[in-house]
């Protein structure tokens, strides 16, 4: 097989100069790339100093430019982005986000466990997380991938307020964010002014579900919402923020109102099916059950104020002029783009 033992002569002749040329070419490219690589961080550093924020975990986060591709990895963070007027920047939200109209077009990523690969696959220039929900350890991983991540504070109403302003600052929608934050605070103060001054507050418990009686204890934002709504939360006595109420305790304390995110399946009958001894409670006998949409209350965020209004209107109907209140809520909703 001569063609294998000796290569064709024209190939042998051409190969030597081609090899030298290629070697020279690659060396030139390598040097050029090296120079470029050295120069690139310098440019990033210059941009990065333009925007630096301290997030809910106390981390200092620098952003090169105003982000255009934002991934929210917590429903609370999505609510804050909406309130700050930056909804069009979102490229993905989590499967835990509620199915509302303005998020319907967005792809969803797994929230539990967090689908890290999918997040990176969206090529985000900012990830927004919640300091209450998301794992702080993820920050290091995303930093290593050069993707900035901001953990928004949501421990209290003032945290939510600050998060809206901070998000507006980061997304370049300061005016919208300021307007929304001011408007929400005005709604809160107005609600408190309506419900305060009553001699005796009605008592209540808030249940996350009509099946297992998960509730909220000390340190929970839901107790704040109930107080603004003019309701005395009986579960304030629990030191844990998420107690599971015992039937005996509920019977003994006999709340005036049972509030909860009961949803479509959460009728009085289904509540009694799971807690038959509650039949003698005043709240059950008098049909004082208040259903609050889960999307408004189960995630700490700007929507919570609407939940507080709904609870107050259900518990203190005499304090509200229904037509005026509806108009007020509608106008607030439009001004803040709250669904």
């Amino acid at each position: 097989m001569p063609y294998l033992s000796r290569p064709p002569s024209h190939l042998t002749r051409l190969s030597v100069p081609n090899f030298r040329f290629l070697l020279l070419f690659f060396l030139t490219v390598a040097v050029a790339v090296q120079f470029t690589a050295c120069a690139a961080p310098e440019k990033q550093t210059v941009d990065a100093t333009e925007l630096t924020v301290v997030d809910g975990l106390g981390r200092s986060v620098s952003l090169a430019t105003s982000p255009e591709r934002v991934v929210s990895i917590a429903p609370g963070a999505t609510h804050v982005v909406r309130a700050a007027g930056g909804l069009e920047r979102l490229v993905a939200v989590t499967t835990a986000d509620y199915q509302v109209e303005d998020l319907a077009h967005l792809p969803r990523i797994s929230a539990l466990p967090l689908d890290l690969e999918a997040i990176v696959g969206f090529n985000p220039d900012l990830i927004l997380a919640s300091d209450q929900v998301n794992d702080p350890a993820h920050a290091e991983m995303f930093e290593a991938l050069d993707i900035p991540i901001i953990y928004l504070g949501s421990d209290s109403w003032s945290d939510v307020h600050d998060s809206i302003l901070e998000t507006g600052h980061v997304l370049g929608t300061r005016e919208s964010a300021q307007s929304a934050a001011d408007s929400l605070e005005a709604m809160r103060l107005q609600l408190i002014s309506i419900t305060e001054g009553q001699e005796v507050l009605p008592t209540g418990i808030f249940l996350v579900s009509h099946i297992t009686s998960y509730s909220f204890g000390q340190g929970s934002y839901v107790l704040d919402l109930m107080e603004w709504a003019g309701i005395e939360p009986l579960t304030r006595s629990f030191e844990t923020p998420a107690p599971i109420l015992d039937d005996e305790w509920v019977l003994l304390n006999n709340p005036d109102f049972i509030l909860g995110t009961f949803g479509e399946s959460g009728s009085k009958e289904s509540l009694l099916a799971n807690h038959p001894t509650w039949r003698s409670l005043d709240a059950i006998r008098s049909d004082r059950l208040v259903d609050v949409p889960a999307s408004l209350i189960l995630t700490p965020g700007p929507e919570n104020i609407r939940a507080a209004w709904q609870m107050a209107m259900a518990v203190h109907p005499a304090l509200f002029d229904s037509s005026l209140t509806a108009q007020k809520l509608e106008s607030e909703r439009n001004s803040q783009s709250i669904p």
Partner: peptide, 9 residues
């Protein structure tokens, strides 16, 4: 179990 966390399950 009832005594350990009064009022809770």
């Amino acid at each position: 179990s009832q005594w350990a966390l009064p009022g809770q399950q």
